[in-house]
Design a protein around this nucleic acid. Structure first.
Length: 560
RNA sequence: GUCCCAAUAGCUCAGCUGGAUAGAGCAACAGCCUUCUAAGCUGUGGGUCGGGGGUUCGAAUCCCUCUUGGGACGCCA
């Protein structure tokens, strides 16, 4: 908000638009350079004066009660906020708005669907699906904070030739009792064995395909097995989602679209988009310099492109979204590029809103994890360990804590989720259990701990802060905190617009750091005339930390 | 082979879309708990921003090129 005041001042003086100047205004790295800066270098040519000259001229003509100092320094005009004024402003705003601080209404009346998580039935919940789940969930929370209505869709992988393979393997080597007892690991074993043997045995591949065709044609026995595998898997996934606190509005998976694909194929045909290539039905995309999109295999079975087209159309018809997001690994970039173009070729102008939000893969020893080779790390085991570790820490540090189990869950899960969310979405992550379980430094538990500290202070000294005023000295001493609080709305907007939860993760780390530094330096509960001002700051920090964590899908316990 | 993505401290990563002296965390070392939770704080050391060109008043950031790593490229999703 103060940035725009500075932008307006400069714009007026230069007879330029506020948008133009706002783009140039930056936040100086050095504290001595103030809170905002306007660089004058670009104006030098146009004005035929040195940047230094322009800056000092400009600085001399600018003034506003919001800023205590506006001065020229080496080609910049530096703005220093009136700390007392800004501090009381931001504290008041947070006190009034509470968790709504940073909210906007830009998305009012618009629906956004988010395709997230989408694990595969009969396979364990992998680390890759963790990324999709937590990133997608956080993006949903961020968009809700911007006023959008968000529909979270778990596009469960419950269909495809893999089930033909699985049924084939179960028929050959499966043991019903064993599978009943320990479903997912047993099914995984069968799946792995199938792939091991298929390398030697061409016939097995054909049998797998045949089973899938029978499944797709409605064969009763195949469907019974499929339903069984699906139900048990969903139950198991449900436990993981509950641990993580993720909820969906729809779990219409791939099978859901089985009866919705004919229509799409016919439509493609009618619009003259289909052509025959090597026995398969495809949409040629040569004009876009892309490989063709495969709609039907030569044996007539459908493919994921067919299903995703049907799903996209169904979602538009059901939810009338303005945007439809897919939080899926970057290895599927080509597929989503093709999907969007085929929708456009079909004449759907809403395809503009169809957006792939890619993320990096979870690698092991620098390589892709493979289900088929059984090389993968299971999420529930990781969460379990994280929770145990949190529990052990509580027993050591705060043994009298009342709701220990719930706090251990929040902290353990918080560590795992935060580790994933804090780094750039697109970067690959080399799997490291050690890093995920870390609780010191730039971690979820560190932020949670800071929040708990603030809560404890407030519990120890209750006070009515409604009319508390902040004095100049307190504002100056706590300035790094106040300045950071001031930036929360910007961080939220940036994160929402760029689908980038890591921005919020970095923000809460920074806020926690400046607060902890203050905590180590200043005795907050000292009974003096400035106590109310300090408590007002602590309250604001508590509110914003909790809200930041919430936007990441992470809990903020009051004690830990 | 073609296309996409990445490369910053010993390790893991930031760097606010081109600005002032490139910053954190971990690890190492030195300190701080008889008063608000040490899952914390303070300090020290650590850099050819992968290499080379270019654009610009100004480049870790934009463009070209090379190197290295990862991914995708028709019947898996």
């Amino acid at each position: 908000m103060y940035k725009s005041i500075a932008a307006e001042l400069v714009a007026e003086a230069l007879h330029k638009s506020t948008e133009e100047t706002a783009k140039l205004i930056e936040r100086p790295k050095q504290l001595q350079h103030g809170d905002y800066a306007f660089p004058c270098f670009a104006l030098a040519k146009e004005k035929r004066k040195s940047p230094q000259h322009i800056a000092s001229e400009l600085a001399a003509n600018l003034s506003n009660p919001a800023f205590s100092v506006i001065e020229a320094m080496g080609g910049y005009v530096n703005f220093t906020l009136n700390k007392e004024h800004a501090a009381s402003q931001v504290l008041q705003t947070i006190q009034q708005q509470q968790v709504a601080y940073g909210s906007t209404t830009v998305g009012q009346g618009e629906v956004v669907t988010i395709d997230l998580s989408s694990p595969n039935i009969a396979k364990p919940f992998s680390m890759g699906h963790l990324r999709s789940t937590v990133i997608g969930n956080s993006i949903g929370l961020l968009l809700e904070k911007q006023g959008y209505q968000v529909v979270r869709i778990n596009h469960v992988g419950d269909w495809g030739t893999q089930f033909g393979k699985l049924i084939c393997a179960y028929e050959k080597w499966g043991d019903e009792a064993k599978v009943r007892r320990n479903t997912i690991p047993e099914l995984l074993k069968l799946y792995i064995r199938y792939h091991e043997e298929a390398v030697q045995n061409e016939q097995l591949v054909q049998e797998g395909r045949d089973w899938f065709r029978r499944l797709e044609q409605g064969d009763a026995y195949a469907n019974k097995l499929w339903r069984w595998f699906r139900d048990v898997s969903m139950e198991e996934f449900g436990r993981v989602y509950e641990l993580m606190g993720v909820k969906f509005d729809s779990d219409a998976g791939e099978a859901f679209y089985n009866n919705k694909m004919d229509r799409v194929v016919k439509e493609l045909e009618q619009k003259g988009l289909l052509s025959l290539s090597e026995g398969a039905q495809v949409v040629q995309l040569d004009a876009y310099n892309l490989p063709p999109s495969l709609i039907k295999k030569k044996d007539g079975a459908t493919l994921y492109a067919t299903r995703d087209l049907a799903a996209a159309i169904y979602r538009k018809e059901s939810y009338n979204f303005s945007r439809s997001l897919y939080v899926v690994g970057h290895e599927q970039s080509l597929h989503f590029q093709q999907l969007k173009i085929v929708l456009t070729k079909m004449g759907y102008d809403w395809s503009d809103g169809v957006t792939h939000i890619p993320f990096g893969m979870v690698l092991q020893d620098g390589k892709k994890m493979s289900t088929r080779k059984g090389k993968l790390v299971l999420l529930d085991k990781v969460l379990e360990q994280a929770i145990q570790l949190a529990d052990a820490n509580i027993s050591k540090k705060n043994p009298s804590l009342i709701n220990k189990a719930e706090v251990a869950r929040q902290v353990g899960v918080g560590a795992v989720l935060f580790h994933d969310l804090k780094q750039e979405r697109i970067h690959d992550i080399d799997f490291s259990l050690e890093d995920m379980l870390r609780v010191e430094g730039e971690t979820g538990p560190y932020v949670q701990y800071t929040h708990a500290r603030a809560c404890t202070l407030l519990a120890k000294r209750e006070m009515d802060l409604a009319n508390s005023e902040i004095d100049k000295d307190t504002a100056a001493e706590a300035w790094p905190i106040l300045s950071q609080l001031l930036q929360f709305p910007e961080a939220v907007t940036y994160a929402a617009v760029n689908y980038d939860p890591s921005r919020i993760a970095k923000y809460v780390i920074d806020l926690a750091q400046v607060f902890n530094s203050y905590y180590g330096r200043v005795r907050i509960l000292n009974e003096d005339e400035k106590l109310a001002a300090r408590l007002a700051i602590v309250t604001a920090v508590k509110t914003v930390l909790a809200e930041g964590l919430r936007l990441l899908g992470i809990g903020a316990p009051k004690q830990m």
